[in-house]
């Protein structure tokens, strides 16, 4: 079995056995979105206007919530050093861990988003772009967040620090993700925004594993 698949299976099995971690991110996402109508009031028009941005911001926070755990457990119990010592490229291991992280925390958010959109009074036509933009954007959140998670290994108060490092880098994903949904609401073409979102994902897919692997090597020194 290739190391990529082996790591992917290990991560998924860990997530399945431990259960709660990935569920917590999803529950946080749902609860955080549902608490907003209590704050701003139940006016349907207002909720419809803020829904795309709201769902995106909460998806971003949900991604951050589970981010600092990505390498922490491996760093603490020493398996990270074994992974570093293995002859397989660290970049592919990083990519496998990111994929597992997205499958367990990003994908549930993408699936839950249209339901929340309906509850916030979004039109059915704008739900498809919302799901498409989230499906293209949340893997980028995981990849960029993984760099932050690797950088803060061994730092004091690492969890808070990840947010400070990574949130500024999340802004482009947020801008084009919300722009795609807004375009659908106002009958503008959605495609360009989704293409840019896909381009950001491809760039992150190509570059983030290298930066992340570099950071992990320094963390283990």
């Amino acid at each position: 079995m290739s190391p990529f698949l082996a790591v992917l299976r290990r991560e998924l099995r860990l997530a399945q056995r431990q259960g709660s971690d990935s569920l917590v991110a999803l529950l946080f996402f749902v609860l955080a979105v549902l608490i907003v109508p209590f704050g701003v009031g139940p006016d349907p028009d207002l909720l419809r206007t803020v829904a795309p941005g709201l769902i995106w911001v909460m998806a971003l926070l949900a991604a951050l919530l589970s981010m600092d755990r990505l390498f922490l457990a491996d760093h603490e119990d020493g398996s990270l050093e074994l992974i570093l010592l293995s002859p397989h490229p660290l970049e592919s291991v990083v990519l496998a861990k990111c994929l597992a992280h997205w499958l367990t925390t990003g994908l549930p958010v993408v699936v839950a988003a249209p339901l929340l959109g309906l509850m916030l009074n979004m039109d059915a036509t704008s739900l498809v772009p919302l799901v498409a933009a989230l499906a293209l954007g949340t893997p980028t959140l995981t990849l960029v967040g993984a760099i932050g998670a690797a950088l803060v290994l061994g730092a004091r108060r690492g969890g808070v620090l990840v947010s400070l490092l990574v949130l500024p880098l999340y802004i482009p994903v947020l801008i084009f993700g919300v722009a795609a949904v807004d375009a659908a609401i106002h009958d503008f073409p959605v495609r360009p925004h989704l293409l840019i979102e896909a381009a950001i994902l491809l760039a992150a897919l190509a570059l983030a594993p290298w930066a992340c692997a570099g950071a992990l090597r320094h963390a283990a020194e």
């Binding site: 950088l151 803060v152 061994g154 730092a155 930066a211």
Partner: peptide, 22 residues
């Protein structure tokens, strides 16, 4: 973020390397 990361580690060189990647 760069300043916070530089100063977040007990060992200064580790902070410098992490901040360089950032």
């Amino acid at each position: 973020g760069h300043m916070a990361l530089t100063n977040a580690f007990d060992e200064p060189t580790r902070g410098a390397r992490a901040a360089a990647i950032l």
